[in-house]
Design a protein around this nucleic acid. Structure first.
Lengths: 149, 149
DNA sequence: TATGTTTTCGTATGATATTCGAATATTTAT
DNA sequence: ATAAATATTCGAATATCATACGAAAACATA
């Protein structure tokens, strides 16, 4: 056994997919060359960043999902993007937003289980610059990435 | 002009893409037939829900992004999934989660601008069953759907 | 160790995207 | 308004690619 699956998941999480021209052509009843032209234009304009897979995250060992609200320390408060751009690197993090209101950053994180999340908090989130976090645990995901579950 | 673009965006938001076998094969240095077998298995198991595009949402007229924390009325509190499953239908909503803590539901919503969001709140969110909402506006998106921006 | 099942992977085939060029539509300049 | 430049549509030919198939290997089960 080669166990290619985790490698596939890792690739498809961010890309390595492509539009299915023939299905689109059938659906929209337009010539595929015209669609091709329009799609390439969207890609070149940067309107489309990538094509990727959406998973049933429970089935790929990432069933635990949380939102993390982050309060930055006074010295980091002025530049939330600095810490945000470090967090972005971690594969467990689905999204990072600088936000308004009572907190400075919002993360969406997926891990295997609560234990794995606790490790992640210890190793990644509990660092200088982050004063306090509030974790909102997802009990049930009804829709993600525009895809109904 | 046919203005196919909005139709394409609508389709690619949820699907109409497919794995790019040849690129994966080159990347992983594995025979494409073996990869094909493994990918089909993931799809049949339901581990992969769909393949879709990730956009630069500013460039497709959905630059305004917010997180909405929802407090349900006492009579709806026991079954947050009911209202959640109604919300799921709206194309502006990227994700819907039932959550723990001070609120019952968490939404991620994308609209053109603040005006469009206000309309959305009036028409969709301000309804019986939803007592109170707290909107956290995204000032800057650093990562979304596992894709760095 | 034998038997059934799953996984790998080459070959052949069918399906599909992409290129190209011409026609049409749209925008821009005068 | 008209012409010129540019952008978009789309059919035909080509090149690329995914998929079906079958054989061999790996793995699991008894």
């Amino acid at each position: 056994m080669k166990d290619i699956t985790p490698k596939l998941i890792s690739l498809f999480k961010k890309g390595y997919a492509t539009p299915q021209l023939s299905r689109v052509a059938k659906k929209l009843q337009e010539p595929s060359t015209t669609l091709h032209y329009n799609i390439k234009k969207l890609e070149q304009e940067g309107a489309i960043k990538t094509y990727k897979a959406v998973f049933d995250y429970k089935k790929i060992g990432e069933g635990y999902c949380v939102f993390v609200l982050i309060t930055l320390s006074p010295d980091e408060y002025g530049d939330p993007e600095r810490i945000g751009n470090e967090l972005v690197k971690h594969p467990e993090i689905e999204s990072v937003d600088v936000i308004t209101g009572d907190w400075e950053l919002m993360l969406k994180i997926r891990t295997k289980d609560q234990d794995a999340y606790y490790d992640f908090v210890k190793n990644v989130i509990s660092r200088k610059g982050i004063t306090k976090i509030k974790t909102l645990t997802s009990l049930k995901q009804l829709k993600t990435e525009f895809v109904e579950l």
